[in-house]
Design a protein around this nucleic acid. Structure first.
Length: 463
RNA sequence: UCCCCGGUAGCUCAGCUGGUAGAGCAGGUGGCUGUUAACCACCCUGUCGGCGGUUCGAGUCCGUCCCGGGGAGCCA
């Protein structure tokens, strides 16, 4: 079967050409003048194509008049300019084949707006809706833009492992991976005997590719990872998933300043790409999801990202006339409400915070000369909060060793990570971007479960 | 995990201070129309989340459990 995608048909606008299209029926409207309008969508574009089916078609009564929302069809005919409003062209069908029926009594999708909550329960059908089709296309465009950005800059795409033997990546609770029979786990010294497990030791799903990315950065310079990441936290929020996709660039010979510069350039590039390549989908989000997404993204592409230190941010928050639920104090975490105040009230735009107190950040971040703060950075955006978290890495063997010890970890578990500082250590930096959070920000969708095809959250793995 | 809100027809929801359920959409039938969230008329649909309690009587009040949403923490 040779078919032309509806996106191509709409783009070419070539009245008079003969085409075959295929897709799913969104709606059928009959005219007793002796013909029907069938709107089909094939997911290649937000917009569908209107098929005009005349009663002369051999299967008009037997099939065409029985078409309902959800049926799959192919239609072959001539592209003509449309006398009606709402579309420039339509397909005057010579033949229409029904590929699959969809019983209207039981097909869950209707020609109306459904709640996202309802659609989450039918993850196998929701991509057929306008919103989820648009999310799929925007997600694809953003992923492509990410690869293109790094490729144009000469970064190598590194495939870091999903299965990991270390349980000390320091970024949250991990999922255990095992082939041991849960009904009869071999025991040793009061615990599971992992020497009998597949890897002859405990293994987990990765919570970050950073440590492995550092290995490659310290060999080939500039690298990035883009892959699935797993966190077994019992998080029930609109911006957390147990399985999500993360982008992690890592650069040798790069300090925190260079890291911030890259992060800002990166975000602008991806936003600009989506705005340029997903015009209709973005217009859709701007109309039905969030009336300010396009304006926000456009401003962000041209706007300067305000950079300030943690200490400066605390001063600003202390001076704020607002009452915060959580008190502001140097050394404490910047709460979600504080982030929102900075982004939405003070700067009305993205904010990059750097130089956090060492005690609230990870062990691998490079110590500043003051001995109190580390070269960390968080990129905060309105509505979502933290979209990027990164740092310059500690490259001094002794300092890193003592940090690991101070945090109560065993340096033996980090032997190869420490080795990188022992042999030809160089300053290096990187960050992690939550891909789904980026898509949330770009589309305006408020729940992260609606920007990934099959969301995994506590108690939810049905699809 | 904690706090708040909710679970009523296939979907989206209404149902006041307790008196055994209703609208719109979807679906069916008929009509009408180059229609486009089509329109008009008629018809169909409910263990009111589960269990227990108060009461003459519970969708409505109380307890409890399950599920969902929003917020918080953890973070990306």
């Amino acid at each position: 079967m040779r078919r032309t995608r509806i996106s191509e048909v709409l783009k070419s606008d070539a009245v008079g050409t003969h085409v075959t299209v295929a897709g799913w029926v969104r709606t059928r409207r009959d005219s007793k003048g002796g013909f029907s309008f069938i709107e089909i969508n094939d997911g290649s574009a937000l917009q569908g194509l209107q098929i005009v089916a005349d009663q002369d078609l051999s299967n008009y009564r037997s099939h065409v008049l029985r078409l309902q929302t959800g049926c799959s069809v192919t239609a072959e005919g001539t592209l003509v300019s449309s006398p009606g409003k709402g579309q420039k062209v339509e397909l005057k069908a010579d033949t229409i084949h029904v590929l699959g029926w969809a019983d209207p009594e039981s097909y869950p999708l209707q020609k109306k707006r459904h709640s996202f909550e309802f659609l989450r329960g039918i993850a196998h059908l929701r991509p057929r809706t306008n919103t989820f089709g648009a999310v799929a296309r925007v997600r694809n465009a953003a992923a492509f833009a990410i690869h293109r950005f790094f490729q144009e800059k000469g970064f190598l795409y590194i495939h870091t492992p999903i299965l990991t033997g270390s349980d000390c990546e320091g970024a949250g609770e991990m999922f255990r991976v095992t082939t041991l029979d849960p009904a009869s786990v071999p025991l040793k010294n009061g615990g599971a005997d992992y020497s009998q497990d597949f890897f002859c030791g405990p293994s987990h799903l990765t919570v970050s590719g950073q440590l492995e990315a550092e290995i490659y950065a310290l060999a080939v310079g500039d690298v990035y990872t883009f892959g699935p990441t797993f966190r077994a936290e019992n998080s029930n929020t609109s911006r957390h998933l147990a399985e999500f996709w993360m982008v992690e660039p890592e650069m040798a010979f790069c300090d925190l300043k260079g890291n911030v510069t890259l992060a800002v350039e990166f975000l602008k590039y991806v936003f600009a790409h989506v705005l340029e390549h997903c015009v209709e989908d973005m217009a859709f989000f701007n109309r039905f999801i969030d009336k300010s997404v396009i304006r926000t993204l456009e401003r962000l592409v041209n706007q300067e990202f305000k950079t300030l230190t943690y200490t400066e941010a605390i001063k600003l928050l202390e001076k704020a006339g607002t009452h915060f639920e959580f008190p502001v104090a140097w050394g404490g975490d910047i709460q979600a409400e504080h982030e929102r105040y900075l982004c939405e009230k003070v700067f009305e735009g993205p904010v990059v915070l750097i130089d956090y107190p060492k005690d609230i950040k990870a062990f691998y971040m490079k110590m500043n000369d003051d001995g109190k703060t580390v070269r960390a950075m968080d990129v905060l955006v309105p509505r979502i909060g933290e979209i990027i978290g990164g740092s310059q890495r500690e490259d001094d063997y002794e300092l890193l060793h003592s940090r690991i010890t101070q945090m109560g970890f065993d340096p033996k578990d980090y032997w190869w990570y420490l080795d990188l500082r022992k042999f030809g250590s160089v300053p290096h930096s990187g960050f992690g971007l939550g891909f789904e959070r980026l898509i949330q920000f770009v589309t305006g969708l408020s729940n992260i479960r609606d920007v990934i095809p099959f969301p995994r959250t506590p108690g939810n793995i049905a699809f």
